[in-house]
Design a protein around this nucleic acid. Structure first.
Lengths: 118, 118
DNA sequence: CGGGATCCTGTAGGATACTG
DNA sequence: CAGTATCCTACAGGATCCCG
């Protein structure tokens, strides 16, 4: 029998969900540590407000850490915490599955065309 | 260097996200095959409309299959497809991580109390 | 029994302007 | 530079009623 999932996937989903969350994490995985505007530039389309909000949430959850340099002009650096890094395998699994799923959906579409769908 | 995630996690997230999606999948993993109202009863709080919509989406993505018995009263059975089952490891990983994350958050809260947060 | 058709609402997320 | 502070909108999701 399949190992039953006790439904705490919500908790993980809560962290990962959000239109931009995983892209932020992706950047921090790739670049280790980034400044606010660096992140903003790396993620086209996101607004300051949303980026700030997401980063605050991730910070609260101990997934990213925020280093503030008391200087003018301000400098703030974000990076993954060690704990946050435990998300990487999940993101990688989802990434893999996602890639495969895209292919799968295309094949499905092709099949349906061949069998003459409306 | 960390294996960069190419950002197709969106695709997987798209499938999994939705307030109820993973609970539906959870039920189908546990019970193999279920009728509409069985699912509805197993997932307290969900409405027919939403359940129907989610099932349709999952069906379109070839993750669940819908078996209709032409009879009165109607009988419709839902179950995971073999392809849909490839999601199980991801759900399990998220479940594990989610459980651990809950503990982690509690520890964080306790730490902050001890250090005298406002 | 397993939905479809409507109508409604909360909130995640966007646009824009201002600031230490 | 790295944010706040407002205001606004789209849409996921909910409530309800109807139907073969």
């Amino acid at each position: 029998m399949v190992n039953p999932i006790s439904c705490k996937a919500d908790t993980a989903l809560d962290v990962l969900v959000g239109k931009w969350t995983h892209k932020i994490l992706y950047q921090l995985i790739k670049n280790e540590t980034m400044r606010f505007n660096e992140l903003k530039r790396a993620i086209p389309g996101i607004t300051q407000k949303v980026l700030t909000a997401e980063l605050r949430e991730l910070e609260e959850q101990d997934i990213v850490i925020r280093k503030i340099y008391a200087q003018i002009p301000p400098k703030v650096e974000y990076s993954l915490t060690g704990y946050g890094a435990t998300l990487i395998p999940i993101l990688e699994a989802m990434d893999q599955w996602g890639k495969n799923h895209k292919k799968h959906l295309e094949e499905l579409a092709a099949d349906q065309e061949r069998s003459g769908e409306s």
